[in-house]
Amino acid sequence: MSQIVTLGNTRQRFRIVGGMDALPALLVIGGLIAAATLLGLLVRARSTRVASGCGGDEHQLSVDGAEVTLVQLSSPVCSACTAMRRVAESLVAADPTVAHREIDVVDEPAVASRHSVYSTPTTLVLDREGHVRARLIGAVKPADVRAAVDAARLPVAVTA
């Protein structure tokens, strides 16, 4: 008996979700598309960016003799990592003072966890002393990589 009553209530409440008229239903659909688009734009804006002033030292990772070392943290199956590798390698080919090395976050999770890196590729920009001067998140555009590299050549701004 009580079950029938419950069912009846449920169905009555459910009229809000089911049995909607076409117009409000279409409005919901429109809202859903708009929300998904907004989310997509947000994700796109967040997925490639340059963060500077992150701090941290990775002396042991900086390549001897290089003014700037790009330490790329990659995962085994990630197409953006391939794109980022291409960008970094062409930069290194053009400028011998820059070095690039890649670390697999599955094989060597230590570096990634030291810097709380959760998305790949993330590239740490190390200066001559091995200080982390910036991190490049995603497949960053060549011009932005170059700008971050050039900034890392300058002496560290004195921290207040």
Partner: peptide
């Protein structure tokens, strides 16, 4: 999936 949502919104829940 969008068609499913539209149908789901307009149809009453089967008894």
């Amino acid at each position: 999936l969008l068609v499913v949502v539209l149908l789901g919104l307009t149809e009453p829940l089967g008894a």
